[in-house]
Design a protein around this nucleic acid. Structure first.
Lengths: 195, 195
DNA sequence: GTCTATAGTGCGATAGAC
DNA sequence: GTCTATCGCACTATAGAC
């Protein structure tokens, strides 16, 4: 899979990831969150799995492939929430499902989703990534009634607020339940008035 | 300056940065924002300044020193805004100054403040950084009337929302003015009810 | 304040055995 | 699917001349 495929959204991936591939991606996500994508080496991933670099390279040909697989794995979680929201009969219920779903996701994977989706390297991958763009526009359509370009601001803000807040040092001492309920309360306030 | 000094907030720095140091920090911030801290090498910083790596090392002994100087430079901008807010006579006016100040800062330095303050490496520096912790608690006190641990959630969310939203791909095409007014509108909604 | 030159380490990636 | 071994390169950092 080369860069052109990424940009066009073509998916030459060979079906679902193998067990070994899933382990590589899981280890990579954890390290990306702690050291950033650029600060994570294949040696670190290999060491955390108890194998050698060559074994990691056997699963993914290049480091970019690992980054992409990790980013798309996180995107998959998000997509599942948006799918569930889209299946709701009314817009209000869709929004409720979307908001609680994303808050749950962020709290559950506190410090992982967040950092990964805001890492400059991954953002760079996503800028021309069709699956990502489609997902973000679906999110915008669910959250805002506007159609102009400024309709995306609430979505960007909502997304950044949730994923950024859960990993903020200020709330590091807070338990998951308190964090979750506070986030829900504040988010609903954001979208209380007609968006 | 060693790690212990960072943790205790002691400042053995030799006064204000020289012109050459300021140029290094500015170049570093730009590159950190584009490639992440871990993805930025001293060679990249040197090349972007048109000098050699040794010249960069002459200004700062280690890469960590550069990271810290860059992080504290960004922190300085934030501190100036909080200082201005604290000087206001009433809490409502203080909040207004704080919110517009931070929104202005984020839009002005779109894509720089944001990435820098959320980079895992810099967050790691800040966790035990006294100046950062004091600043964040001042921010919390201004934004929330609560005193419990959950009082920090709105602050974390506000901070993450602003700094994260300005660099989100969804709003990449938006002009600064539209982005600024939208952010202000939405932020005021967040803090409309008694916090 | 900048340079050249260099040391030592770790990087991404490959080849080929088991 | 994992290993050992290796390549060429870039990295952080230092020493000493200008």
């Amino acid at each position: 899979m080369d860069r052109a495929d990424v940009a066009t959204g073509r998916q030459p991936r060979s079906g679902p990831p193998t067990a070994a591939q899933a382990r590589v991606v899981a280890a990579a996500l954890d390290l990306f969150a702690r050291h950033g994508v650029g600060g994570t080496s294949l040696g670190m991933i290999a060491r955390s799995l108890g194998v050698t670099k060559a074994a990691v390279f056997h699963q993914y040909k290049t480091k970019d492939d690992i980054i992409l697989a990790a980013a798309e794995a996180e995107l998959g979680h998000l997509e599942a929430v948006v799918d569930a929201a889209d299946a709701e009969p009314t817009r209000d219920r869709a929004r409720a499902v979307l908001i609680t779903g994303i808050v749950d996701l962020a709290v559950e994977r506190r410090g992982t989703v967040s950092v990964i989706l805001s890492d400059p390297v991954i953002v760079g991958f996503f800028v021309d990534h069709q699956q990502f763009r489609r997902l973000m526009h679906r999110l915008s359509r669910l959250l805002s009634d506007d159609t102009g370009p400024e309709a995306h601001v609430p979505t960007a803000m909502f997304f950044a607020a949730i994923s950024g807040a859960v990993m903020h040092p200020l709330v590091a001492d807070l338990d998951d339940e308190t964090l979750r309920s506070q986030l829900l309360l504040l988010t609903r306030r954001l979208f209380a008035a007609p968006g």
